[in-house]
Every structure is written in structure tokens, then in C-alpha cells.
């Protein structure tokens, strides 16, 4: 456990003691802020009863942040260690493969959640100026953050996997971006397909990130989508672990 905590602290340190970490936070904050400017303009023109969180998720900025920030956060995790050779020094200490994968993933997740904190500030500003308490309650905000957390888990585990495949950070970022956009497009496909009882359509419907996030943003937590995110996250973490272990294969 103490080895895991040491690894976790070190990984967090590389996020918070480096300029790249703050650039990512600044970029996420800027995009969040821009989306709220757009959102407030819309609100000014057209009063609505829809919760602010639901409107926010509907802007493209939200998905832009998810799709762009996760590859940037995760690209360094394994690729840099492999390129610098520190992967060798790391893996010849008493650490276990699973500890390394989990520590890197959780540190990335922690950093990702920190990068989303400015969103709370935006929500409070909206609440203050609209004087509409009902538009923004604990449940919708909680649901939204749960959604952000789960989507983050999925995309970050995907990024971990991409980073473990290569020595080049650029390649890692591109692989995870392409995989992420692919997953995201499946959601579009699900939207475009007419609802039917066919197995393929129903399977694709599970990948509809849009609808799932829509529920979360309204404060509705659907266990089906929670299970979807948790299992896919575990799948990609497992794949990452296998890649890390693969150097021991004969």
C-alpha cells in the first residue's frame, strides 16, 4: 500500500509541478468559461426551465473538453517513461505491474477532476445572477459531476492504454484521440439509427454517450450507464496491464 501511495504521489506531482498541468487546467477553464458566455446569452434571450447543467452538457464545448483534455493528460503516463528509460528503473524495483497502472490512472483521474472544478464556480455565478435556485440544485450538479467522473474514467483508461502501447507521447495522444472520437461517433450512430429491437442497434445504443450524459445532467442516474462506464474502464485498464506485463512474456 505504501508503495502504491508513493507512486500515486509521484504521479500527481508530475501533474501539479509541471507547466503542462497548469496549461491543461487553464485551457479547460477557458473552454468552460466560453461555454457559459454562450449559455448566458441564450438564457438572456430566451428564459427556460431546463437546469443549467443540462444546457451546459448540450454545448459542444463540453465534449471538446473531454475529447481534447483526456489524451493530453494521459499521453505522458507510460510513453514518457519508456522513451526516457525510467520505465526500466521503475519496473526493477519492488513495484507490481498493477500498482503502477492503477497509480498512474488514479493520478490522471484526480488531476482531471481538479481541472473540472472551475465549472462549479461558473455554476455559482449563474445561480447568483439568475436568482433561480430551482435551475441548479444539488442533485443535478451531483449527477453532472458523476457523469463527468464516469466519462473521465472511460476516456482516461483509454488514454492509459494508448500510452502504454508506444514510446512516443505524440503517437499516444493521437491513438487515444482517435479511439475517443471513435467511441463518441458511435453515440452519433446510435442517435441516427431508428429505435428497433435488433441486437446490433441495441448494443450500439449502449454506446450512446450523449443520452447517458443527458440523464446525468438532469440528475438521473441510470445503473445501466454506470455499469457501462465502469466495465469499459476496467476493460481498458486490464488491457493496459496486459501491455505492461507483455515484456515478461517469453
Amino acid at each position: 500500500m505504501s508503495i502504491f501511495l508513493t507512486l500515486f504521489r509521484r504521479e500527481l506531482g508530475t501533474f501539479f509541478f509541471s507547466i503542462t498541468g497548469y496549461i491543461i487546467i487553464a485551457a479547460v477553464t477557458a473552454l468552460t468559461g466560453m461555454s457559459f458566455v454562450v449559455l448566458l446569452q441564450n438564457l438572456g434571450n430566451d428564459p427556460t426551465t431546463v437546469p443549467v447543467t443540462e444546457m451546459f452538457y448540450g454545448t459542444y464545448y463540453f465534449w471538446l473538453i473531454i475529447l481534447l483534455s483526456t489524451p493530453l493528460i494521459t499521453m505522458r503516463l507510460f510513453a514518457l517513461e519508456k522513451a526516457a528509460g525510467t520505465f526500466e528503473t521503475l519496473m526493477t524495483t519492488s513495484v507490481g505491474d498493477a500498482q503502477v497502472v492503477l497509480a498512474k490512472f488514479l493520478a490522471a483521474l484526480f488531476f482531471y477532476m481538479v481541472a473540472w472544478l472551475p465549472l462549479l464556480g461558473c455554476l455559482f455565478i449563474v445561480r447568483h445572477f439568475t436568482r433561480q435556485v430551482a435551475a441548479l440544485d444539488v442533485h443535478t450538479v451531483g449527477g453532472m459531476y458523476l457523469g463527468i467522473f464516469l466519462i473521465g474514467c472511460l476516456f482516461l483508461s483509454l488514454g492509459c492504454f494508448a500510452s502504454s502501447l508506444t514510446r512516443s507521447q505524440m503517437a499516444a495522444a493521437m491513438i487515444s484521440f482517435v479511439l475517443g472520437v471513435g467511441l463518441f461517433s458511435l453515440g452519433f450512430l446510435a442517435l441516427a439509427l431508428p429505435a428497433s429491437s435488433e441486437t446490433s442497434t441495441q448494443v450500439i445504443a449502449y454506446f450512446n454517450l450523449f443520452n447517458q450524459m443527458h440523464d446525468f445532467a438532469r440528475g438521473v442516474v441510470d445503473t445501466r450507464s454506470v455499469i457501462f462506464y465502469v466495465t469499459t474502464t476496467f476493460l481498458f485498464l486490464f488491457l493496459t496491464l496486459r501491455v505492461v506485463e507483455s515484456r515478461r512474456w517469453k
Binding site: 526516457a84 528509460g85 526500466e88 528503473t89 526493477t92 519492488s94
Partner: peptide
Amino acid sequence: VRRRIGYMPENNPLY
């Protein structure tokens, strides 16, 4: 075994 070995790889990788 890893506990008993101190290993410095080629090119001495450090953070």
C-alpha cells in the same frame, strides 16, 4: 530478487 539487486541501466535514466 529485485529487492537484492541494485540496477543502473544504460544511459542512467532519471526523472
